[in-house]
Design a protein around this nucleic acid. Structure first.
Lengths: 211, 211
DNA sequence: CTGTAATGTGAATAAACATTCACATTACAG
DNA sequence: CTGTAATGTGAATGTTTATTCACATTACAG
């Protein structure tokens, strides 16, 4: 009865539907029925386009890796000072998460970490690539005198940890605070941390009780 | 046939068994059968001591919160400079995770975040308390001139993010690197970040390829 | 037109799992 | 001693879920 679509299109629709479902119900709530409903097709039809649930997760991992890493790599390769690039990458990452709650859920999920060793290795690889991209920007910034002499790799991890932990708190509180604003505060403080000499210091308040 | 134990003891055994199971198979692999086997009792007997799986998770949340938070609060209230306290808290936290892989798995788990709103709120509260404990130590350190003028709350989040992100990478790579050593490197770099004036700078190498 | 490969569906199938039940056995208060 | 409440168990029960099957329908090459 319903019109047909070629599998290339269907695969994209299914992956996007899966990302949405994860954003709302988590990887745990990602059932075939849920995906099929969101993508507007029957459960059985999912299997025309994917071998099984694991393959959907694999495709989703590739998509997310590309979305996050691709954006960062593009910024890193572009124009600007090292600190400018870092800031843009940092805030863009936060914005991407704010727009796609499924993203951190997927990254944190142990169904991913433990469920499929191959997928886990893929994601770990993408993470390592991300760390290296940031490390290179930081190293360049140090050489240019924009940052004090730090360990690029550990500083990159520090930066990613800020995002990751914030995403975790944002996820567990179900979006109880503004992620972009929080990222802005963290970045401002990071600036204070890395500054090579004394510079204008913004006044800090504590706009959030806790959490 | 088997000897009996009072429920107070049984509850502890069950919670510890659950923590071990999570460390090996994740929250996803935490089944009643698995817990019962580990604790050396029948499935049905679990229900003599807990109303259900959710209650076990709740008790585990309390236990973990107490273990992590309690240790940090104790150190914070003790003797020493602010930076010394921060270092001990930081490294102790890493060591605790290294000894109990189930700990980060539990904290990251969305079965927890999304499964039981009450438990999620409890954990978010403990996290907020942890952030505040660290913030107070940092604020004291700033006042004492041990750190530069930073935002205590954002700096605390930065510190926790370092641990959290490292635990995540450690978890996804299934313990492919030495967590304590990595924590040591991150702490050294954090020292460089927060130092109020120039001080002896350790030589950095990169002992890990990536990840 | 025509047949055939791709796409689509509702109805099984089978496995995993939390929970309950009916029935022992232990510990201990009196 | 004795009975009773707490602790223990193997065997159901019912639900959720991924996956498969037999059977349409569409699109399109020839």
């Amino acid at each position: 009865m319903p019109p047909k679509k070629i599998t290339h299109i269907r695969r994209e629709e299914i992956v996007q539907a899966a990302l949405q479902v994860i954003g709302e119900k988590g990887v745990h709530g990602l059932t075939i029925t849920e995906i099929a409903g969101r993508a507007g097709m029957s459960d059985a039809n999912i299997y025309r386009h994917f071998k099984g649930k694991q393959e959907i997760l694999g495709a989703l991992g590739d998509f997310i890796g590309e979305a996050v890493m691709g954006k960062a790599a593009g910024i890193a390769a572009g124009k600007g000072t090292a600190m400018e690039k870092l800031k843009v990458i940092f805030l863009a990452h936060a914005a991407l998460i704010a727009a796609n709650p499924g993203l951190p859920r997927f990254m944190f999920s142990e169904e991913i970490h433990l469920g499929d060793p191959h997928l886990a290795k893929t994601i770990a690889g993408k993470m390592a690539g991300y760390i290296e991209t940031l490390s290179n920007v930081i190293a360049a910034g140090i050489k240019a005198g924009e940052l004090r002499p730090l360990s690029p790799r550990e500083t990159a991890i520090t930066l990613l940890g800020m995002i990751q932990f914030t995403a975790l708190r944002w996820s567990i509180t179900r979006g109880a605070f503004n992620l972009d604003a929080e990222a802005g505060r963290l970045w401002d403080n990071f600036l204070q941390l890395t500054q090579t000499s004394s510079s204008p210091m913004p006044a800090y308040s504590n706009p959030m009780g806790s959490v």
